[in-house]
Design a protein around this nucleic acid. Structure first.
Length: 348
DNA sequence: GGGATTTGACCTGT
DNA sequence: ACAGGTCAAATCCC
């Protein structure tokens, strides 16, 4: 098997390039077409991650990775968190952690702040051994004022530089609710966070995102950037996260069986949403749902049976209804099922 | 002025 | 010993 990994990796990379080429020839107005292509690319990304992990496991003397991988998200069971780069994450007992893949699209403009509407404060950035790009560490802005212990780590994918791996650690205990889903997280709306206007906050977030992106894009950039910050002309891009529409097949030990990613690609779909962490979802095992999560709490879920329905859902998400400022549930009238799912909680 | 980010130093787990 | 994670002073930016 391990001898075949390089060949298989090469084949997948070739296929991915072909799909990328196909994507450039797609009609931009074809939502479902773009969704499918994006989903295929995401599957390639996942496949490459798996192959890389297999390779790392074969190379290491500790082959027992206990990382579960669900769709675009990775759940840690905290036994031996083996990352893509082969590094291990410190075990955090009793704390929910999950990873999601967030796509950065260089062609687009900024669709909004990098993060999920919560306020994050960057407290560190570290070069990770064996990884091309550094990992950035964030804490909830309200850690000190509200003792919120939520954190996240952002690292650009080595295998697909347009993808970021975002690891959320812990749930928010602060009172601040993300405003994107409630329609208040609009660049045109003002609010105040800790004495700063929302606009200022978003400008900071956008700048942070931009700089973070540049750091991840080229680890050496930050040195030059520091000297020449005002003169740098950065490319614009937007961040999209993935939504898994089909749950991963889960084996008896609770971990996804990898083969099923390949055999069920016709029904396992992902769409990219302009609202990053809100709609992205670690797929809940064992249910055929389309869910959204917000820092560990599932926001919504529904079942998708057809492309038409998917289109309708996307339209709902992108419609003005979804950005109405006074809705507790901003996607009224959409085919979403607002029954909140059981906590998928992966506390260990 | 004050909050956020940067980054080298330090801490901690393996 | 080493690598990941965190701290905190310096710096940035509004």
């Amino acid at each position: 098997m391990d001898q075949k990994v390089p060949g298989l990796t090469k084949e997948i990379i070739q296929a991915r390039e072909l799909v990328m080429e196909l994507q450039t020839q797609l009609n931009p107005s074809s939502v479902s077409g773009n969704v499918l292509v994006t989903n295929i690319l995401s599957i390639f990304e996942t496949s490459l991650s798996i192959l890389n992990q297999i390779k790392l496991e074969n190379e290491s003397t500790t082959p027992n990775s206990s990382m579960g991988h669900f769709g675009g998200s990775l759940f840690s069971n905290c036994g031996s968190d083996l990352f893509q780069d082969g590094s291990r994450k410190r075990c955090r007992k009793g704390i929910v952690t999950w990873t999601q893949q967030v796509r950065a699209c260089e062609q687009g403009g900024f669709e909004g702040p990098l993060d999920d509407g919560y306020g994050w404060r960057k407290y560190g950035q570290k070069k990770i051994f064996g990884a091309t790009y550094p990992r950035a560490y964030y804490k909830c802005s309200y850690q000190s004022s509200q003792n919120c212990l939520a954190m996240k780590q952002v690292q650009r994918s080595d295998l697909n530089s347009s993808m970021f791996h975002v690891t959320y650690i812990g749930k928010h205990s602060c009172n601040e609710t993300p405003e994107l889903l409630s329609g208040q997280y609009s660049p045109n709306k003002q609010g105040h966070i800790h004495g700063h206007s929302r606009i200022y906050q978003e400008q900071r977030a956008d700048k942070s995102l931009e700089e973070t992106y540049m750091n991840f894009q080229n680890p050496t950039v930050q040195i030059a950037k520091q000297k020449d910050k005002q003169l740098e002309s950065y490319p614009s891009f937007s961040i999209y996260s993935t939504i898994s529409l089909q749950p991963a097949n889960i084996s008896s030990n609770g971990l996804e069986t990898r083969e099923n990613h390949f055999t069920s690609t016709s029904t396992k779909m992902q769409i990219h949403s302009p609202s990053p962490a809100y709609i992205s979802t670690p797929t809940t095992p064992g249910s055929n749902h389309f869910g959204g999560y917000r820092n560990g709490e599932e926001l919504l879920q529904t079942t998708v049976d057809s492309i038409e329905e998917l289109d309708q859902m996307i339209s709902s998400l992108l419609s003005p209804v979804a950005t109405s400022s006074n809705n507790d549930h901003p996607i009224h009238g959409s085919p979403w099922n607002w029954d909140f799912a059981e906590d998928y909680s992966h506390s260990y």
